[in-house]
């Protein structure tokens, strides 16, 4: 039986942070002494400075009577800071069908098959996420030299230095006592670095406070950003550099609901990626027309 449209909308959950199981606070290991707020003099940014981000979008759930497959679109792109300007590098956009065995053409749209990761709907969704991550990895591989900043945790080892930043803080990394410092951080200050172990990777991590105007209206945690990098590199130098980098690129709450943690260049990149993925409505209509109901 041919593939038929099962649902255009599917229950969706924000699960980015869920895959980080966070290292246990018990294994807390300080990399810098003492545990107090730190500042650093401003430094010039390394060039080229890359910001890499990806996006995924589930477009439809289809069924051939026996199995389900998830059609979606994944995109990844890079913004590079060079010579005082932010420039967009050509992004990559791909349509994938999670759980398909053969490519599927729906009108002008072509979906490549990718495997599901796990069972059921969640497995399909995870497969879509993996496809996105794969795209990001492929892009990151092409970026030699310079400093790479990725949205989300550091997932891969790379030749040059890499900074990952985490915008929301569901997982806890600090023991209760040390957490008090997070509330005391002023904008432009950071905690000392501490060690994080995840999936066999040794990482150095620290929290920093972004400016969130007007100051004093929101709880101090709302401007927090957790940054991590590979333990093997010059993590202390990068930690000091991050104090001049992230606050300068923090977005403004008037313009971005995810301010200040959603960085300005990444916000621009995400808009651009969304644009290249095509209009959700137009795609949905095409799918409905060709796959029927």
């Amino acid at each position: 039986m041919a593939w038929r449209l099962y649902a255009l909308d599917l229950p969706w959950q924000e699960a980015e942070e869920a895959l980080l199981r966070g290292s246990e606070p018990e294994a807390f290991h300080l990399l810098e002494e003492p545990w107090e707020a730190r500042t650093a003099p401003p430094q010039s940014w390394p060039e080229p400075l890359y910001f890499l981000d990806g996006r995924e979008r589930a477009e439809a759930l289809i069924s051939d009577g026996e199995r389900l497959a998830l059609l979606g679109c994944v995109a990844a792109g890079t913004v590079v800071w060079e010579g005082g300007r932010m420039r967009l590098l050509p992004p990559v956009v791909r349509r994938v069908g999670v759980g398909l065995e053969k490519p599927l053409a729906v009108g002008e749209l072509a979906y490549e098959p990718v495997p599901a990761v796990g069972e059921g709907l969640e497995g399909l969704q995870e497969g879509l996420r993996q496809a996105r991550a794969g795209l990001e990895r492929a892009l990151a591989k092409e970026l030699v030299e310079g400093l790479l900043v990725v949205d989300g945790p550091v997932r891969a080892v790379r030749e040059g230095p890499v900074l990952g930043y985490i915008k929301t803080h569901w997982a806890r990394y600090l023991p209760k006592e040390e957490e008090a410092l997070l509330r005391a951080l002023a904008p432009g200050e950071r905690t000392p670095a501490f060690r994080v172990r995840r999936k066999g990777m040794e990482l150095a991590s620290w929290y920093l406070r972004l400016p969130l105007s007007p100051e004093g209206v929101r709880p101090p945690e709302s401007g927090l950003l957790r940054v991590e990098t590979l333990l093997s590199g010059d993590f202390l130098g990068l930690a000091d550099l991050s104090l001049g980098l992230f606050p300068a690129l923090a977005s403004h709450p008037v313009k971005d609901p995810r301010a200040p943690q959603n960085l300005l260049p990444v916000g621009g990149l995400e808009r651009e990626l969304a644009r290249r993925m095509g209009s959700r409505e137009v795609v949905a209509r095409m799918l409905a027309r060709h796959l029927g109901r």
Binding site: G84, R85, L88, L264, G268, R275
Partner: peptide, 20 residues
């Protein structure tokens, strides 16, 4: 294009956001 805020131009001049 795609910039919703007039002040985004300042950010573009400072090299903080990519613009088209």
């Amino acid at each position: 294009e795609g910039q919703n805020f007039d002040t985004d131009t300042f950010l573009a001049v400072e090299g903080k956001i990519p613009v088209s």
